[in-house]
Computed example of a mutant assay.
Amino acid sequence: MTQVNHQILLASRPTGEPGTDNFKLVETAVPDAAALADGQVLVRNHYLSLDPYMRGRMNDGKSYAQPQPLNEVMIGGTVGEVVASRSANFKVGDKVVGMGGWQEFQLVDASQRGVLQKVDTTHVPLSAYLGAVGMPGVTGWYGLVKIIDPKAGETVVVSAASGAVGGAVGQLAKARGARAVGIAGGADKCRYVVEELGFDACIDYKQHRDVKSLSAALKADCPNGIDGYFENVGGMILDAVMLRANAFSRVAMCGMIAGYNGEPIPLSAPQLILVNRMKIEGFIVSEHMEVWPEALKELGTLVATGKLKYRESVADGLAAAPEAFLGLLKGRNFGKQLVKLI
């Protein structure tokens, strides 16, 4: 009996806020293991990663990456297990990480360098390779270490601090002797950021509905000003941070989720960039593969020894992916958003 591979395709491009009708669930046959060509590997995906960058890929406009093609499997990171192999580099049972997309099985040409990586799950759980010891963790590491580069005693502020990227940033900043202040949505998330992740403070942006209020909260929790800011959100939060920024402060621009649905996100006081001689640098972590081994070594060691904490929100089954993704864009997730496929 032929096995079925469930896949989710991008059926249409959203105008404004996306909905479940932009996606389509289809069934295809799983490739026959006996019919694999030389170099091919068949992987059963265990977890699918959902990430904010996917919202940008759904659009057809110019960006740092090609748009997600219509009526093709949605792009996405995956971890899973090799179930059939005609590659000398992979054997059945190997745990692997790749870009398998929103589907249960993926057929990979393993002769292409980098499309599939073996991972060791002895001390690091498989799912963590999509979060703290994967792309989100490396994203946080790069923005903090290579752009913000905090010195001991400096203050680093992180937006979306309870998420997979932000949570890593604050903990890595603390490990370097900096003061870490998070911004997150809701009392539960702020409590988690301080009590479990070890940040020095966390501000609930839902309690501060305008720039003046949020800036006052930042002043209270950052009495010596802000030296580094890891930006995931944009909009009012960036405006408030800039009002508290010190001279020669550094901003790592990772995401601007406030504008993902096409909303305008103007800066209210761009002159502060000049007045404070601020360095503001955007980055895409996939363009810095040369640092991944260094980053993953530190992240993997910290996770394996219990020194880097993280949390996962797990949706069950591929069909749950669209709703979970839309929830992620609205901040409904708590920590790294995953979909369990097996």
Score class of each variant (00 low, 15 high):
R244H: 04
L267A: 09
Q271D: 14
V211H: 12
S249D: 09
L272W: 06
G255N: 10
G225C: 08
I273P: 05
A247L: 04
A240H: 03
E263G: 03
M256F: 14
A240V: 01
M256L: 15
M253W: 03
K212V: 12
P266F: 07
G255R: 03
P264M: 05
G262N: 08
S213Y: 09
Y229H: 09
A269T: 01
V233W: 07
G225Q: 07
D210Q: 12
A258M: 04
A216V: 02
N232D: 11
A245G: 06
D227S: 09
S268Y: 02
D221V: 04
E263S: 10
M242C: 07
E231Q: 11
P270C: 06
N224Q: 14
M242G: 05
R209N: 15
D210F: 13
V233H: 08
M236T: 07
K206D: 11
I265T: 14
R277Q: 12
C222M: 09
E281T: 13
M253C: 12
L267E: 07
F283S: 08
A269M: 04
V211I: 15
I284F: 08
G259A: 15
M278I: 04
S268V: 00
V233D: 12
D210Y: 12
G234R: 02
R250G: 11
G228A: 08
E231P: 03
A252D: 06
I237H: 07
Q207R: 12
R250F: 10
N261C: 07
R209C: 07
F283V: 03
A252L: 06
I237R: 05
L274N: 13
V251S: 02
I226P: 12
I237P: 08
N232W: 02
R209Y: 05
H208Y: 13
F230Q: 03
G259I: 00
N276R: 15
I284Q: 10
L274V: 08
I226S: 12
V251E: 02
V251W: 01
P223S: 08
I257Q: 11
Q207Y: 04
L214P: 08
V251P: 00
G228L: 02
S213K: 06
A269V: 00
V275P: 02
P270A: 11
A217E: 10
C254W: 00
M253F: 06
D210N: 15
L272V: 03
R244T: 10
N246M: 09
M256E: 13
F248S: 12
N246Q: 09
V211L: 11
